[in-house]
Design a protein around this nucleic acid. Structure first.
Lengths: 267, 267
DNA sequence: TACATGTGTCTTTTGTAAGAGACAATCCAG
DNA sequence: CTGGATTGTCTCTTACAAAAGACACATGTA
């Protein structure tokens, strides 16, 4: 599965040679980079900066951006020389939601959960071997833990990550998880073996709780949503204060598992 | 539905030969066609059919689809040899919503309206010179009028279309509206001059009502949402039974105009 | 059995799109 | 004002991606 572009995770082990620059790139790949770059920056970008950002010749980016704007995938932003995502992408995204029962119902369920419990709730999936928050609904706490939709976080940092990897071969997991991913935000370092053991435990238990991994103040409760084929297709999770009582945590986990199970019953 | 080719309206009037087939197409254009085709069909498509659908060589589509699937813009659907929109497009779409105040608030307002009135309500915008239903919220009537989000309808068929074109030059309007667009679903034919007059009237009145245009049973009430620059940026509309009383229609229009005005107050 | 139809992966060929660079027009700081 | 940085549009060349087409392998069906 060598694909030659820089976007996806490179499976070839070792410190990947960083696609020596310069070489002539396919237009499509440039476009994919542009979209990723805009997604990463979450705001309109000037065309010049865009060219710098994706490390491509200016002339190329001008041509591509014009095509994309004409097609409606991008739009010129307010002042006139910046671009950001366009309506077309929104429409396509809605098509995706409509065609995807799990996502549609999952979003609903997550909204319900955060309303009922007052805690931040999220729907998570694997995306290109990365953990992705597909939908999140903020809780009602004064200090809410906010995480942007579409944010990608290293798998080992999360409870959901442990569930999402349940059932994968060890080799596959090793490919998905880079060395950097094992280093937590506070600098602590996980052992790959421990992580893989966590995955097995979580898979067997049917839920997962992590405390103080991404930050010191929260714990994360997650439950798996299964596809018809029995694979973990998504997780729903709750982010709660780390000092939440054992009892309440237990209740929330039960609730979470019930809802996740309901989502799993796919037609 | 089977409009077959060109994804954008060709602005160059006259019998422009539509970029005759065969010739070697830019990869990016192929991709844009693929996305448009999937959007038009609203379901997963086999790669072979996709190649036929966009009138491109099979081998090319295989390569492009692989890139797109790797990038997450497309996903392989259930049985394994069909593709449809992918999570990435959903995420980009959400980015668009987040970066677009009007859309975010407009969706909300439309949801409120349909809940309060029980009628189908829609948020509409111009998209590449086409009228587009950007968000729609079904009413509670037994026979609800449903129209898919992202559906594109000829401008002259709708009340919103008349408002959206307010302020455009006559020549621009002529370019946007094809001969076919002037033929209503029931075969009646509008005169371009009448349509242009309608536009002026609607623009001056600040709302628009059309009766029995797209079908014989409904009328469409619409009000304009203005950008800071004073241009009509979107409309919100209600689709109600054609026999709705004068009085109730008036009330609904007043409501609609109030909500549209509120949306117009952009920060 | 033969025959058609669809799928997925190769290779080879060649038309063209990506890239380099030059240009004028702005903009801003000193 | 001047000099440097940025923007948008152009032209020309050649490296390379799109296309053609052959292949192997499934299907179904007469």
């Amino acid at each position: 599965m060598q694909d030659g572009n820089g976007l996806a995770v490179r499976p070839d082990a070792g410190p990947d040679e960083d696609r020596i620059a310069g070489s002539r790139e396919k237009g499509l790949n440039r476009v994919l980079h542009i979209l990723e770059f805009l997604h990463a920056n979450q705001r309109a970008i000037g065309i010049g900066d865009l060219a710098k950002g994706v490390n491509a010749p200016r002339s190329t980016i001008y041509t591509l951006v014009r095509s994309l704007v004409d097609a409606g995938l991008l739009e010129m932003a307010g002042d006139g020389n910046r671009v950001y995502f366009g309506k077309k992408l929104y429409l396509y995204g809605m098509d995706y939601v409509r065609g995807n029962d799990l996502l549609r119902r999952g979003r609903q369920e997550v909204d319900n959960l955060s309303r009922e419990t007052g805690e931040t709730s999220e729907l998570c999936m694997l995306q290109n071997g990365r953990y992705t928050i597909v939908h999140s609904s903020p809780g009602t706490r004064p200090f809410r833990i906010s995480s942007a939709t579409g944010l990608q976080i290293p798998l080992p940092w999360t409870a959901s990550g442990r569930l999402l990897l349940a059932g994968f071969e060890r080799a596959v997991i090793e490919d998905m998880v880079s060395e950097d991913d094992l280093v937590l935000p506070d600098g602590r370092r996980l052992l790959l073996d421990d992580f893989i053991e966590d995955i097995a435990t979580a898979g067997a238990a049917g839920y997962c709780v992590t405390s103080g991994l991404v930050d010191a103040y929260t714990k994360c409760l997650a439950a798996p949503v299964f596809s018809a084929a029995g694979k973990v297709e998504a997780t729903i999770c709750l982010v709660v204060p780390i000092d939440t009582s054992e009892e309440k945590t237990g209740d929330l986990i039960a609730l979470l598992r019930e809802r996740a199970a309901r989502l799993s019953i796919t037609g």
